[in-house]
Write a protein that binds this DNA or RNA. Structure first.
Length: 418
RNA sequence: GGAGGGUUGGCCGAGCGGACGAAGGCAGCGGUCUUGAAAACCGCCGGGCGCCUCGCGCGUCCCGUGGGUUCGAAUCCCACACCCUCCGCCA
């Protein structure tokens, strides 16, 4: 949710910023009208309530003989307040619904453009030289580290079994990534992965991404698509002391995505599956510090992949491809020899106060009004995609995979699939 | 799954239809005292929204959440959530 006051105080600049994300002027005007009506209704209702309270208090002070007449006279206030409350509720609901669908204001430095038009900021690592690269499915299945056929029988398309060294690879990568994050001050967390609607709404996945979410039938809970959701919710409805900030976490959890609308896309292997595991970075920071924190999180991501000796590029995502809650986003795209393409392996977003406004996570300010904190999230390591990049880039002609030295202590071996 | 108890401000804890945003205590902040500190004493000490003559003002809402009764609800009624105890089940 954006700040309604911004629209009130500086409508032109706000409209211009939102126009970059495709929100048109008519929608802006509609929001302004709803905001004005809402405030008018609140003022009217407050006034009516003040009158009613005054009348009621007079009854309390009055003697027994005067009361019946006063009570009768007070009846009218009750009806008027009730009518105004009803109208206020309607206006507030309209206001909420309209604002909930407005995406976050883009960061001034975020580039214009649509999906696929991002700016490559830099590349790192050395591109592998491979004569006849196999893709991850060939490599992993040959080593019995991946079983897609049986997963399809048990769970359907876009599910997988990681077995043997495939399963060990996950344990090693996760622990490795968590260690890197912890070195940078992030506290490890295993969060709940079933959450209430409120948490989904608060993080901006509802109402805009509903078709991406798995929902439980009997309990009105959602399976999270990322641990960003429960991590963001960790401090909902809290007023934090400034000296508690920044709060930095690293979560490990499975992630569930319906991938509706992605039919026929990335159907091979484990690049795009309904269930995967991810190590996620999350920070709550003072609003002045979110841009710096964003760079910090991106640096951790680069460290994770850099030390795995994976060649990749950092992309500044254009405003047309941002999620609803993000003001700016950087992806790391690793080179996948099996596809001869750079594909997204991490993503980090600065969601400024968009999530904290809905989740009501604030910080105390000595002088002046308390502030909403800024929240940021980033992928330390998405297990399945990291496995793909790792085995495809470090494969050797005999189908074995060289383990980068940073991972060897975690895996307990120098070569996989031997 | 069954039975019972609970949810009040940063914390503890009173209040059980009218003067209650809520006693009292603790913590915190400011002051008096003191060479300094402690103690003692005095004062301050929640949040949201709205208004504006933008004043360290005014109004309104918030005692788990949402409804209801009433001129008036922290207090009465209903539903839900969460926590605790016991039984059952269970990694």
């Amino acid at each position: 949710m954006i700040d309604p006051r911004l629209l009130r105080d500086d409508p032109d600049a706000t409209a211009a910023a939102l126009a970059r994300r495709g929100v048109d002027r008519a929608a802006i005007e509609h929001l302004r009208e709803l905001d004005a009506r809402r405030r008018q209704m609140i003022a009217q209702l407050d006034e009516a309530r003040a009158e009613q309270a005054e009348a009621s208090k007079a009854i309390g002070r009055a003697g027994a003989e005067e009361r019946p007449a006063l009570i009768e006279a007070a009846q009218q206030y009750k009806e008027r307040v009730a009518a105004l409350e009803e109208e206020r509720d309607r206006v507030v609901a309209d206001h909420e619904a309209a604002f909930a669908r407005i995406p976050n204001l883009p960061h001034p430095d975020a580039p214009d453009g649509q999906e696929g038009e991002g700016t490559v900021v830099r590349t790192f690592g050395t591109p592998p030289e491979l004569d006849d690269p196999k893709d991850h499915v060939e490599l992993l299945e040959a080593a019995d580290a991946l079983d897609l056929a049986r997963a399809a029988k048990v769970s359907g398309a876009r599910f997988a079994y990681l077995k043997g060294e495939g399963a060990l690879l996950e344990f090693a990568l996760v622990r490795y990534a968590v260690d890197v994050a912890m070195r940078h001050g992030h506290v490890p967390v295993i969060p709940p992965v079933l959450v209430r609607e409120e948490a989904m709404y608060g993080t901006g996945f509802l109402p805009t991404d509903e078709q991406q979410l798995f929902r439980t039938r009997d309990d009105e809970l959602y399976l999270v698509g990322t641990s960003e959701v429960p991590l963001a919710g960790l401090h909902m409805e809290e007023l934090l002391d400034p000296d508690q900030l920044p709060l930095r976490y690293v979560g490990y959890s499975p992630c569930f995505r319906r991938e509706a609308g992605a039919h026929g896309k990335d159907t091979r292997g484990i690049l795009r599956v309904h269930q995967f595991e991810k190590v996620e970075l999350f920070s709550f920071v003072h609003p002045d510090e979110s841009s710096d924190e964003h760079e910090r999180i991106l640096a951790i991501e680069e460290e994770v992949f850099g030390a795995l000796e994976i060649h990749a590029q950092v992309v500044d995502i254009p405003v047309g491809d941002l999620g609803a809650s993000a003001a700016r986003k950087f992806d790391i795209e690793a080179w996948l020899p099996g596809q001869q393409a750079y594909r997204e392996v991490t993503s980090c977003s600065n969601t400024t106060d968009y999530q904290s406004r809905r989740l009501r996570t604030r910080m105390r300010v000595e002088q002046g009004p308390n502030l909403l904190v800024h929240t940021l999230n980033g992928t330390a390591l998405a297990v399945q995609r990291a496995i793909i990049a790792l085995v495809e880039q470090h494969q050797r002609s005999d189908g074995t995979v060289a383990v980068p030295s940073a991972l060897q202590p975690y895996l307990g071996r120098e070569v996989l699939f031997a």
